[in-house]
Design a protein around this nucleic acid. Structure first.
Lengths: 196, 196, 196, 196
DNA sequence: ACATAAGCGAGACGGTACGTCTCGTCTTCTG
DNA sequence: CAGAAGACGAGACGTACCGTCTCGCTTATGT
């Protein structure tokens, strides 16, 4: 029996040092958190990571790409998709992790990531498909289920409701509007009919 | 006899050349639309406008300020702030120009501006103060008036309603969701109680 | 009467700062003398001269060009061309300044200059015509005069004798052979018949 | 039983590949002739020779050493050192190969090598020790022998005569002076007393 | 009427970051 | 173990840009 040798192409030469990967990303995240995007300099990252500049450019072809990747990796964007039958609760529990991140230390990083998403079409597609898309589709599914159950009027605008969580949370994050815990409730109150 | 010394301060010496103002802003807008914020360079603007750099810095104290002003002026963001007493109509009429621009040829520039706003903290403050702030405040005023008139329940979330137009429109623009004329109606339908 | 305004083209803009010219050349010479060609770095020159790198590159398009020019200017290559009727004395007095320079602190710089001469054909022509050429031609003239006077045999190889001073001195300098005062006498003794 | 451990040290393991030696030197010479010393890069040599960089550094400890060796081997600078008892003939026969090379296709490489020798101190030492030194010393030996034989006056300047061939030939090559066959005779005629 | 204050085009200046390149070493895998 | 491939730390190179600063000239005002 032959093991498929195409899966890992067995690259010749010395393999990339994983410790460098980590050091670079960590240094980038640190500098980014401390001084913002323009405060990240390649020489700075290299120095802080104890790494040559070439070692960075071997992995990322530009500062923008480096920062995006650092943030993406640093902020593990994987969420659960709940479906309990209680639309309000499901929506709130889906919004919660995003709210937390947009409120925490990673906020800048998150926003930065959203920014680069727009500058790199490929990144956008990948991101939308794998992260945003699923959540949006799941919310649409939840809303339609609620309509079928009779919890929501038949003429509810499922599509627009599905956009509301992302739209409001990002909007608040971007414009530095208050991001307290009550916000989630206010959002569902606004876009869903009050339960009688 | 009264000398109006406040209106136009009657500066001595040669007055600023209005043609320069126009040339500078136009060159800035062109470069911004073509290459984004970082593609705008002061030397580039000066060259394209046929103007010395000092002439630019005499008007704007930094690149961020210049770009903000250029986009603001170029996109005519000084919209009318209607107050007819019909909240639905007022909201729709306030959203219309933004929708049109986000749909039109300037869409790219608008989105890029929003993007760059996030990359450069200096840009963000400028933008928020001069562009966003007034509209948001006006919508809040409209909603509160509607509540006072009894057109809206007393417990309506005026603040959140005021965010809805911007939040949804930008969200749709950024994620390439449909931007048809019906969108405006759907938004107000979602966040305002249906008129009985 | 109209002064011809074409002579000095009245360049627009701020004129180059002569203090920078001086500072740059001096810093270059210093570093070159201390650490050799590879010890000259553009950042180092800039720092030592208290000048931005752009200010250097505005004047010299590369490190090589900068160093050549620094050496050329620093080592004022203008010599007298004596003609006393005493060939031995004339030759020695023509060799003396070159010997001194090749022996002194500028030695490295001189050699360096000779090197760059070979790398840049244009520089070579200019140099040969204005500096080397004249001296070589003058020596040929002196030798021919000596032959006419009968101080030298009629079949003397004037051309080769004219090369001897340069050939030997540079050879000694390049190969770190002794450059004492006696050398000049030894050279003329070798290539000129001993006076009886 | 005696094991000859001195002649070929009988190294354990795989022996060095002679094909690598050749490929490395050839690639180095090619690059050197085409782009000069600074145009030779270790990565470039490795790529062109189809060889790993370690394979080069196992043979030569630095770029300077590699280039020196390449030029020395390529130009076959290990000339014979004749000693026939006829000083004129010996000198001419020692100059001949250098003249030929300085006239031939390798002229550029030779001159460039001499040039680069001066730019990189490391190069200079290598070159002088291994190439120049031996020949100079041999000529000195020949001249002293001629003096002992009485073919040359006792007060002849052996050291300076020993420099003449190199000094004049390189001087002519560098300054594009005529390099015809007669040159060799003219040089010995100038620095050696005519045979009566 | 003419000095003076300011605007203007051009471009030099100090500083800083970028992205590329090379050197000489180190690390892996294959023959 | 040699060799091919190539990653690694260090650091110089030459470019681009920012925001400031001179130049020499032009244009209004105000006395």
């Amino acid at each position: 029996m032959v093991i498929s040798e195409h899966d890992v192409p067995v690259r010749a030469g010395r393999p990339r040092d994983p410790a460098c990967d980590a050091a670079i990303l960590q240094a980038t995240l640190d500098l980014f958190a401390e001084h913002g995007y323009s405060g990240v300099s390649m020489d700075g990252v290299a120095a802080r990571a104890g790494v040559g500049k070439a070692t960075i450019y071997r992995r990322y072809s530009s500062k923008a790409e480096l920062v995006v990747e650092a943030v993406r990796c640093g902020a593990q964007l994987e969420d659960r998709l709940p479906d309990t039958g209680d639309l309000r609760a499901d929506l709130i529990s889906m919004m919660r992790p995003l709210l937390d991140r947009l409120r925490g230390d990673d906020a800048k990083a998150m926003v930065m990531f959203a920014v680069e998403r727009l500058r790199e079409p490929e990144l956008a597609e990948e991101f939308d498909r794998s992260v945003i898309g699923k959540k949006r589709e799941h919310i649409r599914h939840l809303v339609r289920s609620a309509i079928e159950r009779g919890d929501l009027p038949a003429d509810s605008d499922a599509d627009l409701i599905a956009e509301a969580p992302g739209a409001f949370l990002w909007h608040h994050a971007i414009y530095n509007l208050p991001m307290d815990d009550a916000l989630l409730g206010r959002i569902v109150d606004l876009v869903l009919p009050r339960p009688t």
